[in-house]
Amino acid sequence: MSAEALRERRAAIGEFRRTEVLVPVVDGALLSAETGGIRWLFAFTERAALERFAEARGENVPDWVPVYGARLLDQVIPSVDGPVGIAVDAGSPTGLVLPPVTGIVPDAVALDSAGAGA
């Protein structure tokens, strides 16, 4: 990864951490999907993006919770069993994927960390 790409990635992660996002709730649980052995939580930067996503999936999303990205990364992800990443604005051209790796999630739950699963 080039130095410029690394700076851009760090800036995007920092912006996500400071942003209040909407996390869809279905049947009392945060909406997520599993693929490739990773659970992906969905988070949206605006209600319209969440509604477009739900409509495209034919999903009924009756509720959502506002939460800062930092809380999702630092508190929610470590509380879920197995590797967890975040799909921000899924289905949108401006979507962002935050995989469970060091520099994004806590080292103790990062897939590429010696402390993973500790």
Rank of each mutant, 00 (worst) to 15 (best):
78 P>Q: 05
79 S>D: 00
103 G>V: 03
94 T>S: 14
48 A>N: 03
8 E>Q: 13
47 R>A: 04
30 L>S: 07
15 E>R: 14
30 L>Q: 05
94 T>Y: 09
81 D>N: 10
112 D>M: 13
26 V>L: 14
95 G>W: 14
44 F>Y: 05
65 V>I: 08
5 A>S: 12
93 P>T: 06
48 A>E: 08
15 E>L: 12
110 A>S: 12
23 V>C: 06
52 R>S: 11
95 G>S: 14
106 P>Q: 03
13 I>M: 04
63 D>Q: 09
21 V>E: 00
45 T>P: 08
49 A>N: 05
6 L>M: 05
54 A>W: 07
113 S>M: 09
14 G>Y: 11
30 L>P: 01
13 I>D: 00
11 A>Q: 13
51 E>K: 06
68 Y>M: 05
101 V>T: 11
91 G>P: 02
98 L>K: 01
113 S>I: 12
85 G>F: 09
72 L>M: 05
80 V>S: 01
49 A>Y: 06
92 S>V: 11
49 A>I: 08
22 L>V: 07
46 E>C: 15
96 L>R: 12
28 G>Y: 09
36 G>Q: 10
47 R>N: 02
32 S>A: 15
16 F>S: 02
70 A>M: 02
110 A>V: 15
28 G>F: 09
65 V>Q: 00
58 G>S: 06
56 A>Y: 01
31 L>N: 07
21 V>H: 07
31 L>S: 14
56 A>T: 01
114 A>T: 13
87 A>P: 09
14 G>T: 10
42 F>S: 02
42 F>M: 09
24 P>G: 11
73 L>R: 06
31 L>Y: 14
33 A>E: 15
14 G>K: 08
70 A>K: 10
33 A>P: 10
23 V>Y: 04
66 P>L: 08
19 T>S: 14
8 E>W: 12
42 F>H: 04
93 P>I: 10
105 V>S: 06
109 V>Y: 00
78 P>S: 05
51 E>T: 06
87 A>K: 04
73 L>H: 04
91 G>H: 10
73 L>M: 01
20 E>L: 10
72 L>I: 03
57 R>A: 07
32 S>C: 15
71 R>S: 05
29 A>Y: 15
26 V>I: 15
